[in-house]
Design a protein around this nucleic acid. Structure first.
Length: 592
RNA sequence: GCACCCGUAGCUCAAUUGGAUAGAGCACCAGACUACGAAUCUGGGGGUUGGAGGUUCGAGUCCUUCCGGGUGCGCCA
C-alpha cells in the first residue's frame, strides 16, 4: 500500500492513455510523469503523458490531452481536468480527496514517506574515511553529514543500507604519525634533543607537529614509563617502540575521531581497516583476479603533459587497464619497492565490500579526490560491481563576514569539534545540507546560530515547536482522548477547505514522492528544502489565523472543526520530525 | 597542457532530473502585534540563467566551443 498520491494518479493516467493509444510501448509509458503543479493556477498536479505519447502514437499532443481530459474529468475525486500549454493535462483534486489522505498519514506515523523503491537492494555507503592521523576538521564535516543523511534517506526509500568507515591505517603516513607521537613522548620523558635534531633523525622529517598528540604521549608514559627511550632519553631503535607507538596512536586517534562523530550524531555500522585487509592478503588476491581477466600488464606511463614532476623518469610498473573502463590512463598498482599502492588496496577493499553482499557501492569523497573517481569506478566496473561517487566540494567558513582560512600554519585550523562547540550539531547538519553537495558552499557561522528566518534550521525547528505548542494547548482544551493520534485518524475533515490548509495537506501528500526522488538522485539536500517549504506553508497557515478567526486551530466552542485542524497540525509535526530524522537533526518541543 | 566540479536577482542558494511565465531568503521599499509564540507574516521593485552556436514540440538542465572560479594530475593517502 503506497501513500504516494502522485504515483497512484500516474497509474490511472497511464491506464487512460493506454485506452487512447492502443499499442502503447512500455518505454513510452515509463516516461509518463505526474508531478505537483509548479503554479497553483495550473491545478494540483500535471502530467506530460500527451506529449511523450504524441510521437509514437502519431497523434497531436492536444488530441491525446483532450482524450485524457475526457477520461479523467468524470472521476469522483477529480474536480477539474484541463489541457494546457503544449499538451499538459492539469488536474485539480477535490478537497475531499486531499482530506482523505490525512488519516493514512496519521496512522503511518513517522514511517509515512517511506517506500519500497529501493526494493531491498543492498547499498554500502562509505563516508568520512579520514586518515587517523589527527582530529577531524571542517573538510571532513560535509562528507560526514552528507553520507549519513544519504544513508538514512536510502534506508527510508527501501534500500538495505550499511554505513561504513574505511580506516586508512596502512600507509607511510601512519609511520610518520608514529614518529611524531614518539617526539611528544621523548619530550614528556625529558629528552635533551631539540625539535630540529629530532626531525633530522626521522625518515622523511618530522610531520604532524600538533599538540593533539600530547595526550597520546602521556598515555605511553603512563603505560611504559621511560622504557621506550634510551637511558639518556634519546631515540631508541624503532623495533623497540614503533609498533607499540603505532598501536596506541591509532587506537587513540580513531577513538577521538569516533567521539567527534558521535557528537555530530554520526554512527557507522562497520569500520574496515586497510591494514587488516592487506595483512590477510586481500590485495594480492584482487590483483590476481584482475590478472586472470587480462586487465593487468607491465608498462611505462607517459609523463603528464604541462606539469612534469621534477624527478620524473620512465619506469616500468604494474598497471591496471583503467582505460578499458573509461579512465584517461592506466593506473599503477605497485610502488617501485613492490608494495601495493593505495589504489591497489582500495580496489581490494571495494572487492571486499562487494564480497560482503553490497549490490551498489557509494563513496562519499572530498573534492580533492575528484581525480580519483574515474579510476575507482573503472576498477569496480572491472570487478563486475557498481560504484557511485558523491563528491563534496569545499566548504568556506565565514565568521563575522570574514573567511576563516583552513591553514595549519596560520593557526586558523578549524576542527570539527570547534565548529560543533560553537554552532551545535543540529545547525551544523542542517546547514551542511542546504546546498547540493557538488557545489561549493559558504558556511556562515553567524547565520547558522541566528534565531531568524534567514536561518533555515531555526525556521524549520520553529515550525515544529509551534505545532507542538498547539498540540499541548489542544490537550488542555479538549483532553487527550480527543487529540490522540488514533482518535484524530477518525475525525471528520470536511472543514479543512481553506487554500492555506489545503496547501499544507498537499505538501504533506508530496512527502513520499520527495523521499523517493531524493533517494534515487542521491541528493539528501532536497529533504532540507522540502522541510523548509513545509515549514513555510505551516507558518503561512498560522498567520492566516490572525486575520481570520475561523482558521485558528483551537476554538473551544467548535470542537469538530478544531479536531480536524489538530489532525492537520499533528500530521505536520510528524512529517517534520520524520524529515529531520533523515537529516539527523533533533526536533525541539519549544524554542528557547 | 589534460581531466573532473561549479557559474542562476546586489549577496547566499533552489529549480520536481528535458516541461508551462526561472523561484526562496538576505538586503531595499511599503504595510500588519487584543493570539494556540510577531523569533512571524503580507505586498512591491530586482534576470539576455557567464558568452556564442547546436539538438527538439520545449533547454538553467543535453552536445560543441570560448571565458571565469575551484580541485586534481606516475611509485601521497
Amino acid at each position: 500500500m503506497t501513500h504516494n498520491v502522485f504515483a497512484l494518479m500516474r497509474d490511472r493516467v497511464v491506464a487512460a492513455l493506454a485506452a487512447i493509444v492502443p499499442d502503447l510501448p512500455p518505454e513510452v509509458a515509463a516516461r509518463v510523469e505526474v508531478t505537483p503543479a509548479k503554479d497553483p493556477a495550473h491545478g494540483d498536479m500535471a502530467t506530460n503523458a500527451a506529449m511523450v505519447a504524441a510521437k509514437p502514437a502519431r497523434m497531436k499532443p492536444n488530441e491525446i490531452a483532450a482524450g485524457l481530459v475526457a477520461a479523467l474529468a468524470g472521476e469522483a475525486d477529480i474536480a477539474e481536468a484541463a489541457a494546457a500549454g503544449p499538451g499538459f493535462v492539469n488536474l485539480r483534486l477535490t478537497a475531499a480527496a486531499w482530506q482523505s489522505l490525512l488519516p493514512g498519514i496519521l496512522r503511518a506515523g513517522e514511517a509515512y514517506g517511506g517506500s519500497d523503491v529501493g526494493g531491498g537492494v543492498r547499498v554500502n555507503v562509505e563516508y568520512v574515511s579520514a586518515n587517523p592521523t589527527g582530529p577531524l576538521h571542517i573538510g571532513h564535516c560535509r562528507g560526514a553529514v552528507v553520507g549519513d543523511a544519504l544513508a538514512n534517506l536510502m534506508t527510508k526509500a527501501g534500500f538495505a543500507v550499511t554505513k561504513e568507515f574505511y580506516i586508512n591505517d596502512a600507509g607511510n603516513q601512519i609511520t610518520a604519525l608514529s614518529w611524531a607521537i614518539y617526539w611528544r613522548y621523548l619530550q614528556a620523558v625529558g629528552t635533551g634533543l631539540s625539535e630540529e635534531e629530532y626531525s633530522n633523525e626521522v625518515p622523511g622529517g618530522l610531520q604532524y607537529r600538533g599538540e593533539y598528540l600530547i595526550p597520546v604521549a602521556e598515555a605511553l608514559v603512563a603505560a611504559h614509563g621511560a622504557g621506550l627511550a634510551t637511558a639518556e632519553k634519546g631515540i631508541a631503535a624503532p623495533e623497540q617502540w614503533l609498533e607499540i607507538v603505532r598501536e596506541t596512536g591509532m587506537a587513540m586517534m580513531l577513538g577521538s575521531i569516533r567521539e567527534d562523530l558521535a557528537v555530530l550524531g554520526v554512527h557507522h555500522d562497520v569500520f574496515s581497516s586497510e591494514r587488516a585487509l592487506a595483512a590477510r592478503g586481500a590485495t594480492d588476491v584482487t590483483i590476481a583476479q584482475l590478472q586472470d581477466k587480462g586487465l593487468i600488464y607491465e608498462g611505462v606511463l607517459e609523463p603528464p603533459k604541462g606539469k612534469t614532476p621534477d624527478d620524473w623518469e620512465p619506469r616500468e610498473q604494474t598497471l591496471f587497464r583503467a582505460t578499458q573502463f573509461g579512465d584517461d590512463v592506466d593506473r599503477p598498482l605497485r610502488k617501485s619497492d613492490g608494495s601495493a599502492t593505495y589504489f591497489a588496496n582500495d580496489i581490494a577493499y571495494h572487492a571486499d565490500k562487494i564480497g560482503r553482499g553490497a549490490d551498489i557501492l557509494i563513496d562519499v569523497l572530498g573534492a580533492d579526490h575528484g581525480g580519483y573517481v574515474k579510476r575507482m569506478t573503472s576498477a569496480v566496473k572491472a570487478l563486475g560491481g557498481q560504484l557511485d561517487v558523491l563528491l563534496c566540494q569545499i566548504v568556506h567558513v565565514l565568521k563575522d563576514g570574514q573567511p576563516l582560512r583552513m591553514s595549519k600554519r596560520a593557526g586558523t585550523f578549524i576542527t570539527l569539534r570547534d565548529l560543533l562547540d560553537e554552532v551545535g550539531p543540529d545547525a551544523v547538519r542542517f546547514t551542511m545540507l542546504t546546498r547540493k553537495s557538488d557545489a561549493q558552499m559558504e558556511f556562515d557561522i553567524n547565520q547558522a546560530v541566528a534565531q531568524t528566518r534567514e536561518n533555515p534550521v531555526f525556521y524549520v525547528q520553529y515550525a515544529h515547536a509551534r505545532c507542538r505548542s498547539v498540540l499541548r494547548a489542544a490537550d488542555e482544551m479538549f483532553g487527550a482522548a480527543n487529540t490522540s493520534a488514533e482518535s484524530l485518524a477518525g475525525v471528520a475533515l470536511e472543514s479543512l477547505d481553506d487554500a492555506a490548509e489545503l496547501a499544507v495537506l498537499q505538501r504533506l501528500a508530496s512527502w513520499p514522492r520527495a523521499v523517493e526522488a531524493a533517494a534515487l538522485a542521491r541528493e539528501p539536500h532536497r529533504i532540507a528544502f522540502f522541510l523548509y517549504d513545509l515549514a513555510s506553508d505551516f507558518h503561512m497557515l498560522w498567520n492566516r489565523g490572525r486575520e481570520d478567526a475561523a482558521l485558528r486551530f483551537l476554538r473551544a466552542e467548535h470542537v469538530a472543526e478544531s479536531r480536524a485542524k489538530i489532525a492537520l497540525v499533528a500530521a505536520t509535526a510528524m512529517v517534520l520530525r520524520s524529515g529531520l530524522a533523515v537529516m539527523g537533526v533533533r526536533p525541539v518541543e519549544e524554542m528557547r
